[in-house]
């Protein structure tokens, strides 16, 4: 019975969705296809060169440096965003905490900031002369540090704003998930005398597996295409030490005027991101179908 109702309405529902699909096709799929086509052309977009650009991409050390940097950012964000968000979420569930709403709002607030604003904010925080971090080091009697100029550490420095900005998003996701865990389970565990850590590891974490998978997926796929923060803070510099794939594609398209190659990089980005994301899905226990 219910299935026939659904079938009858399906056509109508999908018809209402036509504008959405049209916009999606026009704004997402079409440019993607065009980029794919451009990636087989030379940099002026005038002659077909086959897979030549792809051969160049595979041999391009700058591209692989960008990919490596991307992976560093992904690892930091997975630990930072998802990890810290989970810890904070469990803390927010405990009974000792006062002013729960205030904490939630304060942690969620950065999520609504524009990434460019976050980037500027943090480049001020990192500033060598009047940044708050170096002021703090000065108070402690230490030498000021070059946060965004040291080639070895700049990639960590530009990752922290990403963590800072999006930790609130995952916090909300985890809080929503935790509210779905029946309080009976918690009560039972507490009667059995489990400590907070035991409760978190053995009860909350397994019950949040599905939510955790979604959070990881969002975090990894979002971080693979990160651009705005790094563009504002360092522009990929110094040298190529904070270059990520999206920044490299931007540089090629709009600074170096190599449109064909920039398209190739974007396609390379999609391929690598898909591989990484599917690896993550595999590692966290095979797909979301069961949920």
């Amino acid at each position: 019975m219910s299935s026939t109702v659904f079938k009858l309405k399906l056509g109508q529902v999908l018809r209402y969705l036509v504008p959405v699909y049209a916009v999606y096709g026009f704004a997402v799929l079409l440019p993607l296809c065009i980029a794919f086509i451009y990636s087989f052309y030379n940099d002026a977009g005038s002659t077909f060169v086959g897979v030549q650009q792809y051969v160049k991409l595979v041999q391009d050390s700058n591209f692989w440096i960008s990919f490596k940097n991307n992976m560093v950012v992904v690892v930091i964000c997975v630990i930072g965003q998802v990890g810290i968000a989970f810890v904070i979420a469990t803390l927010l569930q405990t009974k000792f905490l006062k002013m729960r709403a205030l904490h939630r709002v304060a942690i969620f607030l950065p999520v609504v900031l524009a990434p460019v604003v976050t980037g500027y904010l943090w480049s001020l925080i990192y500033n060598y002369r009047f940044g708050i971090l170096n002021w703090f080091l000065g108070v402690l009697g230490k030498e000021p540090a070059l946060w965004l100029d040291s080639p070895g550490t700049v990639i960590y420095a530009v990752s922290i704003p990403l963590v800072w900005q999006y930790v609130g998003l995952y916090l909300i996701i985890f809080l929503a998930g935790m509210q779905n865990i029946s309080s009976d389970i918690h009560d039972a565990v507490e009667i059995d005398g489990a400590s907070w850590i035991q409760k978190t590891i053995h009860v909350t974490l397994p019950l949040l597996k599905g939510v955790m998978q979604v959070a990881l997926l969002l975090c990894v796929s979002g971080t693979m295409k990160t651009f705005d923060h790094i563009f504002v803070m360092t522009g990929g510099g110094p040298g190529t030490n904070s270059m990520v794939m999206a920044q490299y594609a931007y540089d090629n398209a709009f600074v170096m005027s190599r449109l064909g190659y920039a398209s190739t990089i974007s396609i390379g980005m999609i391929v690598l991101s898909t591989i990484v994301v599917s690896l993550v899905v595999k590692l966290t226990g095979g797909g979301l179908r069961n949920e």
């Binding site: 990192y126 500033n127 060598y128 946060w147 100029d149 803070m233 510099g237 110094p238």
Partner: peptide, 13 residues
């Protein structure tokens, strides 16, 4: 560069 002629934060400002 070896003489440290430039300000140390040159690449971030």
């Amino acid at each position: 560069i070896d003489l440290q002629a430039f300000n140390p934060d040159i690449n971030s400002i």
